[in-house]
Design a protein around this nucleic acid. Sequence first.
DNA 1: TCAAATTCGTAAAGGACCTAGCCAAATCGC
DNA 2: GCGATTTGGCTAGGTCCTTTACGAATTTGA
Lengths: 406, 406
Amino acid sequence: MQITGAASTTSVLRVMNSRAVFAEVFRLGKASRPELAQTTGLSKPTVAMALTHLERAGLLRQVGQRSGAAGRSALLYEVRPEAGWVLGVDVGRGYVRVAVADLLGTIVARKDRPSRGSRASTLVTQLTRLADELTAEVGIARSDITLTVFGTPGVHDAQTGALRSAPNLPGWDRPGSVERLAEVAGAPFVVENDVDLAAVGESAYGLGAGIDHFVYVSIGTGTGMGIMIDGKLYRGFRGAAGEVGYLPVAEGDPLQDEPASRKRGMFESVASADGVVSLARRLGMADAASAKDVFEAARAGDPTATRAVLHEADHVAHALAAVTAILDPELVVLGGGIGTQGGDLLTGPVRDRLTSLVALDPPRIEVSALGADAVLRGALAVGLTGARDLVLDRAASIATATTGQR
Amino acid sequence: MQITGAASTTSVLRVMNSRAVFAEVFRLGKASRPELAQTTGLSKPTVAMALTHLERAGLLRQVGQRSGAAGRSALLYEVRPEAGWVLGVDVGRGYVRVAVADLLGTIVARKDRPSRGSRASTLVTQLTRLADELTAEVGIARSDITLTVFGTPGVHDAQTGALRSAPNLPGWDRPGSVERLAEVAGAPFVVENDVDLAAVGESAYGLGAGIDHFVYVSIGTGTGMGIMIDGKLYRGFRGAAGEVGYLPVAEGDPLQDEPASRKRGMFESVASADGVVSLARRLGMADAASAKDVFEAARAGDPTATRAVLHEADHVAHALAAVTAILDPELVVLGGGIGTQGGDLLTGPVRDRLTSLVALDPPRIEVSALGADAVLRGALAVGLTGARDLVLDRAASIATATTGQR
DNA sequence: TCAAATTCGTAAAGGACCTAGCCAAATCGC
DNA sequence: GCGATTTGGCTAGGTCCTTTACGAATTTGA
């Protein structure tokens, strides 16, 4: 029953066409007027007009000529990388990653640091200093940052400004606490769940490129899932979509019959790093200290560790069976400490087990191409998209202002 | 990295504005020029021009005047209901429901019949005769139908024209078999999963009105789920999203420890009508013949039947816990035979159980407002949306043709 | 080295669309 | 019946885009 259809005046055409031209230049890297006229379907004068506007607004610049072919050589245009800057921040569990990228998405400065305490004030201080260092390195002011994107654990409630379900960031669940990040960023900033950003990163730069529906499943200290639907991030009603840690654990594992784990019965408690370690211990691998140990032992051929890994694969397969039954994704990307380290040790058994659990062929299952960088890259991708819109809006308002003055 | 931005010429403005005006008339029912100018933001002459075009194309008609207020009385316009017709078909398991609606969505003719066999040819014959009867009743030709929408079990693969996973429609899984429905419909028709259509119906006419993210869970002879995301139907990569029948069944139910059911371990096998009956029998209710019996007995106070219903609620809650963890919907609508008949007998325990299984507050859980009509209403809603676009496209092509001739 | 061919960039002309503003027509209240 | 008020229709004006056309720049070939 919903009927769409925005009414418009002629002036929106100019904006639309400018955006289209900019988008094409962005896509092609370098482009001439005739090329742009052809790909956008606009006429040469219109393209020329748009290019003039965009160049005057500082979004594009002329860059040499295309020679070699017969006839007059065409002037080439490209995006001015300095037309916008993006600050991406990955607030991880034990570390902090910060990077600055230009409008083309090229990372021009980056620092990774161990996290200095989890208290809000120390974290803000550390991030602010890192942002200062990075912008200085690039040679810009912090106010030149067009958009900042933070990736954090937990669910960010934009209404209250609180960060729920982020136990390793104590104090951030208070209403309004997120606003303290304004100190780090310039004016416009965005806070997004880290796993969601990893999914975006994988979509923009990794295995998810060009895939409409896929999920990024992170398994490490905790568990989480980022869902991309129609190429866009899906957050759910309250931003809690993809909280697979609360998936009821599937039956069929005799080890799960112990009362303690049956009581919890959640995916996170059995499949996360701690779950793998306790599983390996119960299987008889008394010296298992970390999930990494277990996977290394399994890779070395230890039969007990191998059994533990197979059990882990079984848990993951059951979770993915639920995801497949509900979402029918084209691709599942495994990330996080265990998802990445496990590699083919995990994907093989997961694929086998999943095949017997789902109706049709199971979705493709791959290990993240970006690894630990996924969140940061996702933050930059989100920032880049937003920054592009912001600078275009700014250019449009400049254009209308100048035409209005005449 | 994706950059949107369609380039446009001035002529698309006319189309856009005509659509906007039409949409407003549709929304308001009856509207005058000044009203439309105000709500669309367009000027009076533009609105007048659009109205003239739409009236000439037969989409709108003038209908009296608005009097009572001071000043000249305004001419009123409304959508011509006869500007388009929609045929909706619900191919159910034992029945067939067919209805014709006009462009306003008013059902003008409808017939429900027991399904005459499940063979493709007899079904097509029956549907064709029903369509003929209905159109005759309305006084239109079958070729006047703008768009036909079929709701069927199974997954329709538009690539091959096959209908997968629909065991009660034998023969329809052959490639190209769906094309036989062209005989029933006029030229343009759409085949959609029945549960998906029920979700759309609930979104257009039922409890889902105005809700962006919700799911419709059908529990009856089989199980299924329709997913609405951002107010649109989500189908998944291969159209198999929402196949909750394949959800791994959660642990924690001692009754499930019998080997037979553990082997299957799917939601459908335990939660569908057959599952309820066998569960009740195993609990000692030897005379349980149908799920309806069980629910009636429970409603009458039978303790064994009540236990069975509670177990059913537990299964449903576990499935919804998985759905909530993955999708975080705002609302869950229960439909299908069991979902509808169960009523508060089911929703109460489901809510209680679900609360203990999920992280945040559980989503709202309600029983379908449309009941057995949900699929048919959904078919009509989908058809209405499509028909509106079709007649607008047709009107636009007429308009450009006439302006081109001048 | 020079002319032909080809392509690019821009200017002018024309068409389509929308807005602003005016005036006539119609209606209601007094 | 008359004035206030609102609606409908019309005209003038402006913005935007496209088509057409022409000069400018470059390569190719002789």
